[in-house]
Write a protein that binds this DNA or RNA. Structure first.
Lengths: 151, 151
DNA sequence: TTTACTGCAAAAGGTTTGCATGGGT
DNA sequence: ACCCATGCAAACCTTTTGCAGTAAA
C-alpha cells in the first residue's frame, strides 16, 4: 500500500521518461479505491477532489501505467474500456452477474495448470490468462423467479 | 452446415420480427469463413460479393444474431469489437500471440469443472465462461531470440 | 537547456440514430 | 395495410492527436 508510486517512479526513470504530479495523482486516485474503473469515472473522481488533470492525460498515461503492471484492462462494456489495478492485489479472475453487474473476484489454481498445459502443447510462452465467467447471481435469480421471468 | 439460416428464421419468427434478405446475407457471409471477424471486414466482404447491405444494418443486426446464439463477441482490440460464429462450432477458448496475433482455439474440460465449482460456491447460475490466454508463440519467440530482443 | 508532458480543442474512428423509403407478413 | 427493416447521412461518444505553453531532469 502506497508502494505503487515508488514502483511507478522507478519504472518511469528506467524508461528515461519524466515523472509528473499529474501521473502520481492519477495513480493515487486509481489505488484509492478497490473497485474497477473507467476513464470517465476516474476523471470525475479526480476533478471532484480538485485535481486539474485532463482526460487527455489520463488517456495518454493509461498505456504507460499498464506497461508498468500497475493496472490492466478487464472488459469492454457500454462502449468503453474498464480497468482494474492489479499491483498488490494478486492475480484473479471475474465472475459477473449479467443482470445486475455484480462482480466477484476469484482465484483458481487449476487455471495455472491449464496455462502450463497450453504452453507446452502449443509451444507458447504464456504471459497471462483472463477468465470471465458470466451468469445470474443468487439475488437476480430470486427476483426473476418471484416476478415469473425467464421461465 | 447451412442450418444457421433455418435456426435464425425460427428465432426471428418466434420473436415476431421479420426476416429479410439482408439478414440472411449477413449470416451467410459470417458462416462462409471459419475466422473471427469484425464489422468493417464483414461489410467489405459483403460489398465485394456485390451485396448492397449497409454498415448500419450490420450494426443493427449483430445484437439480434448474438441473441440467437449464432455468434458472440470475442474481444475488443484496435478500437473495435471482434466476433466469431459459434453455432455448430463447439465451445472453445482462445490462446493468442500478443505479437503476431495468431489465434489458437482450444477446449479444456477442466474449465467446466471450475465453472461448476464457482456456481456452487457463489450461488450463481452460470451461462458461459470465456478464457483468453495471452503469450508469445513459438515463431515470435524465435524471431525475437534471433534479433536479440526482449532479452 | 532540452524536450517530454500538459491542457485545450479539434479530429478521428467506431457505433447509434432520425428519417424517408421499401418490403415482409 | 401495417409497421418493421433498410440505406443514407448526421449525430454521438470514446479515444487520439496537433499545438503552444510549462516544467522535469
Amino acid at each position: 500500500m502506497g508502494n505503487e508510486i515508488a514502483l511507478f517512479r522507478s519504472f518511469i526513470s528506467k524508461k528515461g521518461l519524466r515523472n509528473t504530479p499529474e501521473r502520481e495523482e492519477i495513480i493515487k486516485e486509481i489505488f484509492s479505491s478497490h473497485d474497477h474503473f473507467d476513464v470517465d469515472e476516474l476523471y470525475l473522481r479526480l476533478r471532484q477532489k480538485g485535481s486539474r488533470v485532463s482526460k487527455a492525460s489520463i488517456y495518454r498515461n493509461i498505456p504507460l501505467i499498464m506497461e508498468s503492471c500497475l493496472i490492466r484492462e478487464v472488459w469492454h462494456e457500454d462502449g468503453h474500456m474498464h480497468y482494474e489495478h492489479i499491483y498488490g492485489h494478486g492475480h484473479h479472475c471475474h465472475l459477473r452477474c449479467i443482470q445486475c453487474g455484480k462482480v466477484i473476484e476469484f482465484v483458481d489454481q487449476d487455471l495455472f495448470e491449464i496455462e502450463k498445459r497450453l504452453g507446452t502443447k502449443y509451444d507458447f510462452e504464456i504471459l497471462e490468462h483472463r477468465l470471465d465467467v458470466i451468469g445470474y447471481c443468487s439475488e437476480c435469480r430470486q427476483h426473476a423467479a418471484a416476478a415469473g421471468d425467464r421461465s
